[in-house]
Each structure stands twice: as C-alpha cells, then as structure tokens.
Computed example of a mutant assay.
Amino acid sequence: MPPPFEPLTLVHVVFSSRIAGGELHCIDLANAQAALGHRVHVIGTAGSAVAGALSPAVRFHGLKLPLMRGWRVAALARKLGADVCHGHLGPACKAVAQARSASRIGTLHVGYKPHHHALMDGLVCVNRAQHDGLPRDRAGLASLIYNWAPERNAQVVAMRTDLRVELGLTPDQLLVGSVGRLQRAKGMDLLVAAFKAHAPANAVLAILGEGPDRAMLEDMAAGDPRVRLLGFRSDVDQALKSFDLFVSASREEAFPLAILEAMRAGRPVLSTATQGPREMLAGQPARLVGVGDADLLGRAMAEELARLRRLEASERRVSYATAAYDRSNAVARTLGFYRDVMLHRAAGAERFEDEEEAIAA
C-alpha cells in the first residue's frame, strides 16, 4: 500500500448520461483529488455529459455498451493499477463490486441497497440516518461524510443570470423555484399541484431540470402561464439568487445538493421532511412539511409567500450555518477514509494468509 502521502491512483465510476446531484458530486470530487496530485480516472458511459465537466487532469473512459460492465470496470481498474475504485449511484456500485484488485468504495447518494452495496469494502454515508441504519453484520467500513455544494465554473458565474428579467417579472411578483431531475422521487408533480392550488395569482413557479416526467408536468401546467419549466440550466447558482422562495417537494432525498445550493444563495427554503433535509435543516431558519401531501405543501407555500411579501427584497435573504458542508474538509476526509479502507483490507488479507499457512502447517 502507498505511504500516507504518496499520490493514489483513483478510479471513479458513474454511468449516468446527464449531470444531476450524484454526478455533480463525483465530478467535483474527482477534480479536487486531481488538483491535489492524485492520478484520477472516471469510468462512465460513452458520450456522457460527465466527460465534458471533468478537469483536463482527470482522464475519462467511456464504455459504449452496458454489457458486462462489472467485468469491464474490473479489468480497466486492474489495468490502471487502481488503489481505490469508487462507485457513485447504484448501478456503478454494483459494477465496482467486481473490481477486487482495488479497495471498493461506494457513496450512498440515495440509500443502502444490499444488491448494490453489500460487497463494498467501504461506504460513504451522506447523512447520519444512513450511517446508523447500515446492517450490523456488514464486513466493510463506513464513514459519515457530508456532501458539499460544488462551485460552478467561472465562465458560468460570469454570466450574471437575472431570472426575473428573463421571465419578464414585475417587481411585485414573487418567484418560487425548484431545481432537480424531473422524476417521481423529486416530487415536481406535487410542487406543480401545490402551486396551482394555493399560490397567489401573481406568483410564478420556475422549475430547473430535465427528466422523464417533463411531458406529464407540461400537461399539469397547461393553461397556467405562471408555471415555467425551464429545462436543464448550467447557471443554477446565479438563477437561485432570483428565487424569493426555494421549494423541495421530494418524496425521498438522502442529501439534496439543490437545498445546499439554495442555502449558499441565502434563499428561504421550504422542504418536505425527507431523510436528508431533516438533518440538514435541523436548527436552521427553514420550514419542513410532511412528505407526499400536495395540499399541505401548498398551504405552507402560501403562508411563506405571504410572510415574504411583508418584507423588503433586501430583507428576504437568510443566513444558514453551513460549516459542516465545507468542500476542502470533505475531500480530505474522503481521502483519509480511502486510506483507512486500504489498511483494513490489507490487514484482512494478511489474516487470511496467516490462517492459510496455519492450516497448511
């Protein structure tokens, strides 16, 4: 095993073609590790948007077909001399499980699933409930390391997006916003229903993101010009600054980066009380409501908008405690966890060899 400060060969695996929260975390972690001098590779799907977001110091390996991905990941990790193979999201972790030549790490961006994560040598949990809920009989190590909100690149930040101007809003109109993939887990259908039923007539809802539920959401929004589906945006940080209220209507969330980005932008936050937000927003100046109830969400939204309307625009900014989500600290702790897993794995191999020798004797 390399000495404590010798550069490692690290292989990240993520199979998504689009960039959402888990993919963004993988990209930023790989870029940060490469900037520290480690040899970093990312294995993904050929043509994935992930490749274009990686720094020049990170090498991307695109797999053209999904066939035998586990075997191919294992072979490539072995060829690259990987010290660590780190999977992001379930299918990637399932493939990483076959890379036995390296220490196998998985990040629980969603949650623990035995068929994806049981064979990992180490698991990174993104909230305390995940960590405390892991099976007691797991052989591998686990560590609680919070995600962070990656900084956007300088070119995007320089765009200085003003979403209110883009949408043609007047000063008296309040803008409700949400960011996320358009799929059932994110609850965008609940958000649209809640907004249409309870938001004031001059409020506007902007949803940033793409996904399989777009057509359904367009049907739900039909006839209501207040609901705007803006698709994928690379200027999320800038767009968030235009929101008067950020809403997460998710049915399940382990660690929503969009909420952390809204906190960084100083936006008031209303969220369903899923696993991640319950921990992230505990003791913070934010509001939680029950999961899966569009009427309850809508009433809470109306109350928050009424409260915000009584404030001047400059008074709507919120300050959050975000020290726990520091990027540098999280990257350092992740590298430290890699070392712990490598040591634990090496010790296990030595014990196995000692037992084999004892049996042979």
Rank of each mutant, 00 (worst) to 15 (best):
R214S: 05
H88K: 09
M159T: 15
R345D: 04
L175V: 01
S55A: 13
R214G: 04
N31D: 12
A222D: 12
L141A: 08
Q155D: 15
V126D: 00
G290L: 10
S55N: 04
I207Y: 04
D326P: 03
G90L: 05
E166C: 05
D326V: 01
R278H: 06
R287T: 15
S178H: 11
A282I: 07
K94C: 06
E279H: 08
P7E: 06
V227M: 09
G231V: 03
E303Q: 15
A358N: 11
L29T: 06
I207Q: 02
F352Q: 15
G211R: 01
S242W: 10
A97C: 08
A302D: 10
A95T: 09
P7I: 01
G81Y: 11
K186N: 04
L119V: 09
D219R: 12
G283E: 11
R164W: 10
P4N: 01
L270Y: 03
G62D: 07
A286Q: 07
L182C: 06
R345M: 05
G87W: 10
H117Q: 02
F246H: 08
G292D: 09
P150A: 00
A306F: 02
M68K: 12
E261K: 11
A194R: 02
R317W: 12
S271R: 03
L296Y: 08
E261Q: 13
T334N: 06
R78T: 11
A294L: 07
T272P: 07
R138C: 02
S101V: 05
A129R: 13
D162F: 06
D172F: 06
V176T: 08
G81A: 05
A346L: 14
V13R: 05
C85P: 11
E252Y: 15
S271A: 14
M301E: 04
D235E: 11
L217W: 09
V247S: 10
F15Q: 04
G298S: 05
S314N: 14
Q238G: 10
L311R: 14
G187E: 04
S101Q: 15
F195L: 05
A97G: 08
M1G: 14
Q183L: 12
A20S: 15
R299F: 06
R164C: 03
A258L: 06
S55D: 12
Y320P: 03
G266Y: 12
V156K: 04
R287Y: 09
L24Q: 15
G52A: 11
R333I: 01
R59D: 13
D213E: 13
P7M: 02
S16P: 07
D28N: 12
L123C: 02
V204L: 12
A321R: 15
D224N: 11
L257V: 07
A46R: 14
R299E: 13
M188E: 05
H41I: 05
Q238P: 00
D354N: 13
R160Y: 09
L141E: 07
R164A: 01
A347C: 10
R264D: 07
S248V: 00
L141H: 03
R299A: 12
A75Q: 15
G44H: 11
A118Y: 04
R181H: 11
G47K: 07
